[in-house]
Nucleic acid binder design. Sequence first.
DNA 1: TCAATTCAAGTTGTAGGATGATATGCATCA
DNA 2: TGATGCATATCATCCTACAACTTGAATTGA
Lengths: 244, 244
Amino acid sequence: MKQRLAAIGTVETLPHRVAAFLSREIESGELNPGTRLPTEQELSEKFGVSRNVVREAIAQLRADGMIEARQGIGAFVLAPEQRAAIRIDREALKDTHNMERLFELRCILEAESAALAAARRGQAHLDSIKEALDRMGGEERWEEGSIDADLLFHREIARATGNSYIHTFISFVCEQIRHSIHYARMTNPLHDLVEINVGEHVRIYEALVAGDPAAAESAMRAHIIGAANRVGVKLPLSKTSGAK
Amino acid sequence: MKQRLAAIGTVETLPHRVAAFLSREIESGELNPGTRLPTEQELSEKFGVSRNVVREAIAQLRADGMIEARQGIGAFVLAPEQRAAIRIDREALKDTHNMERLFELRCILEAESAALAAARRGQAHLDSIKEALDRMGGEERWEEGSIDADLLFHREIARATGNSYIHTFISFVCEQIRHSIHYARMTNPLHDLVEINVGEHVRIYEALVAGDPAAAESAMRAHIIGAANRVGVKLPLSKTSGAK
DNA sequence: TCAATTCAAGTTGTAGGATGATATGCATCA
DNA sequence: TGATGCATATCATCCTACAACTTGAATTGA
């Protein structure tokens, strides 16, 4: 439990802060691709930290493919197309518009994945999905337990597609949304009633059992739109009509 | 231990190699979530590098949410659900099955995005998409030029959705595929005839101009399946039939 | 003058030690 | 017994030094 607290309250380490600063400067366009960064020496003076801290920060940006460091010359900003990793700025998610966009992406991913899962799921998949479903409804308190079960439900469906990349992407997007909502509840207790609609989940599960891709897709789509609404995000209809 | 490694393109730095080693150990399951890593001291001795190098490696893994370091205690492996970034192992993409899965994910993302783009695109979007289309056909040599134009074409469509996350995700997936194919061509000259089917692109563009989401979606789906076939990846039908 | 070589300065890469901050367990003492 | 304080282990940060690499200017030789 003590670990729990430590895990939630992320410690802001110096390299992390420096990396975040530079990252923002690059994303915002203040540092165009091709631009040379200040030297490590200059950066350490500018931020008032040691060169080691700057190096750790640059190591992160380098691993993400945001910059490229060349020995003897310097570090240069790379084009956004050459990113080696996808990362979502959690600050930006406090803006409802961005949350809306993320839900839209999630809807795209999960709707088609549900269809794939309906076509490919095995009995073992159905069992683990069912288990998550039961955990969701069985939980007395709408606290961590049922939210975790909800996430597990979606992850298990993604796993049932048999495509590990789909699983990775969906897990990632869901986790970002969960974290953001969790944060919103911490700062604004009004949000305490984040209800989970069990009926929507059951409909998805039944479509999977029946092996009906079209039904699974539309049930998942309806569910995500509903989930978005329940946290105050109005999803643009996307292609609810076009799916027919 | 003075190996001369003339890796093409990327200079293999020590922190990168250490991070890759640890990363693989975690991904492969040798280090389960919750496990404590050896101390920085031990790692630096084990790999024969300085503690600074180990720290830079750990900084990368930490930024990705693969491990969590707690001052005074140690560093611990985190569960795969808590990843803060998506990263695709390029080694794994040499396996055709993985390439197939990635194409499937791309198909999901781009098909629905094309539909969204058809509904939301403005004139400026159409112009830049058309420009990429012209660059693609105009190129004499099927070398870098037309491949870049092809990627740009897809990115501009993603941008026309007005959803920056969709744009990020699609750009990322496309870039991983491009890099992998580029690498395959380097090692196996047989692949030299990676043709680009202009007709498929034109059909997508026309659907966008017409503002027809359903047509855009099916044209995009057909195009990606075709593109996969042309590089030797047979895409499982996914939901070509279910889309009707 | 001109070309080739050498050299010096600047920058990142790596090494190693020192000190501060934090968590844990043990010993001490009332 | 129980609370306190100390020693230890570990990560966080800082510092200095040197190696490897690049660039451009100074030097040298014809």
